[in-house]
Design a binder for these strands. Structure first.
Lengths: 206, 206, 206, 206
DNA sequence: CATGAATGAGTATTCATTCAT
DNA sequence: GATGAATGAATACTCATTCAT
């Protein structure tokens, strides 16, 4: 069942990873639709059938990519949320974490966000509703983390009573926009600080 | 060979508009890729060749749509910006205007935003760089309006010195997110007020 | 809507017919599965899309073929059945008619019969059950015609009481077998006569 | 690298049989084309390579199946033919034997018959002409057995002089049709009797 | 100008077969 | 012998675009 390659070739686990790596690049560059399996296998240096040995179809390949890339991020986020830092500090730390993740995966996530909510309500999308729901869940979970911090802040009296959901979405959208518009640059920490600053204290002169 | 038209001009313009209206609906529902010319002409009740008489190709049809739909909005925005209202009031008014426009055109704009920056650097995309740049320009112009208001506020001392570009993008992203996530509801004015509130004064308890 | 070609090219109605003719040949030679659209268009000297303008898919192309080829035969058969000939004469005439039709269309019908009842009960066949049912109906109708003659014969006392359905199927199968095994030769009338002879009077020496 | 087998021979034969059994089921259910090696090995609980150790390819697997399944039937048929029964009795006995065999193997034989003559003259078929000829031979042999009985009957004066080949094919076709159209039911003996009856004495009232 | 028949490049997916272990 | 990961040729179908009428 398993052919152990002690190393040498290092190509056993590779095939699957080669494909995922190639898919990552192509999907990021071209978006879901314009990415073709042919391009992916060319880059992965493998046969077409091999892709279908590991992934049931193009969509599931895409989904797997999303899932595997985001897993470490999700873990780090969950851990951070549960840390005992004061909420206002946590806000900035969370922003930093998001920025780092999205900067690294900007292109793929752009694609994912588009596919996620797809095309209105109609539903003729390639993405089966079931699959799309999974994307949405992943997304909501991230927002949910932000909401948690805000709730904590309100409970501790350092954040004013406000619509937590809307605020969380707002903060999230700002982070994403900074990344997608390439307004972040190398100074992720600085960017995080200024996002936190405006989010917490507003732009108006007090 | 000869098609007699009672009122050449009038009917002529009509065909074009029929196509644009149909295209608007189909693009909004299906997104750029899944929208087909066949669907559009079925809805527009016209022939396939006619589309290509008025628009050089699918992409340019899409672009024209964007341009024509946004023209009135742009005008209204420009006027508002130049009005003599105090900046903090203007901020809220601008948000309101944006919200109204995006709520009305949510689906088409979702599509447009995706296509806009689209596909990284590659260039094999359908969208020629030149075309894509036009999208971006339109976009930047909107953001530019927001920046103007902020500058005005800073000049008048009611807004603190901050990175105006980033702030404008941030505000813009929040507006868009509220619309796309359907967090607006029917109460556009209320939503605008609370967005402005947080944007200006932050979420932190003072 | 219609572009009248007075003649000259004679290619307007042609396109569809060209495709049908080509499909007829290819399906006959290769069977349903091994026939490819590419071969068909090569023979029809047309583009791939054209096929899909006229026929929704490969299966429906096949079905249309069957339908159009059999229509004249069905009409002739129905007429014959209603003629006032004595039953024993009719039996021979019907056999003749069947033979002529199947000899002419042997290959296509071989394919059709295979697809018709398909593959046991499972149903993973390409042919959607609905479509397959249509094939079956066509088939049953033909058998039904034979049954009618037998009933008539029984009513008139020239055919003995027997299981009409089984007998009709039996007669039908003999006809088909003669054709498919190329036991007919050019002497269709002679073959019909001897089939009728054995069917009516058996092989046993009285 | 080394797979210890307790009883090489025994297990060896087993693998082969497992594959044949599985192939029998799958081919019967799906037909030759839609049957996949993957399904077969899944059912046979063996590896894909193993199939190719025992059979050179899919087609030869199919052929072997036909050959091995029909061997006992052929033997029984040959024996019956040589028995000293009177011809008219033999005819019925032969029909019974055929019915029993085909009822048991209806689905596989349906497939086989289609593949047998398959694809006209072209030759691009998977089935090499040589292979196809073998199918045909098997088939002709069965018919030949029927012919023998008829000849015997003619020699003994109980069957009238007729085209023996055509009659044999006719009888054969009736048997097969009864099976494929599921007109047999559980009463094989009764069905055999009535087939024999009509075949020998015809449907006409004497 | 309006039309729609014709077109073919482009794509996801299947599956028999090979061969290194 | 047994295995199954890797492979790629083969194939149905889509849809933007053209051009003759």
């Amino acid at each position: 069942m398993k052919y152990h390659r002690e190393s040498g070739e290092d190509d056993n686990r590779s095939k699957r990873e080669q494909i995922l790596d190639a898919a990552y690049q192509i999907f990021s560059q071209k978006g879901y639709h314009r990415a073709t399996i042919d391009e992916i296998i060319a880059l992965a240096d493998t046969g077409k059938g091999t892709v279908y040995n590991y992934f049931v179809n193009k969509e599931q390949l895409f989904y797997t990519l999303i899932r595997e890339k985001s897993a470490p991020f999700e873990a780090a986020l969950a851990e951070l949320i549960q840390s005992p830092e004061p909420p206002l500090v946590k806000v900035e730390a969370v922003i930093k974490l998001f920025l780092r993740f999205y900067v690294r995966n900007a292109d793929l996530w752009r694609v994912m966000m588009h596919e996620m909510r797809g095309f209105g309500s109609q539903g003729e999308s390639n993405l089966k509703p079931e699959q799309r729901e999974k994307y949405r869940d992943w997304f909501r979970q991230s927002i949910g983390m932000l909401e948690k911090v805000l709730h904590e802040g309100i409970a501790q009296g350092v954040i004013r009573e406000c619509d937590v959901t809307k605020s969380a979405y707002g903060l999230f959208s700002v982070i994403v926009m900074m990344v997608f518009q390439k307004l972040v640059g190398d100074d992720i920490d600085g960017t995080a600080k200024s996002i936190a600053d405006i989010f917490l204290y507003g732009v108006a002169r007090q």
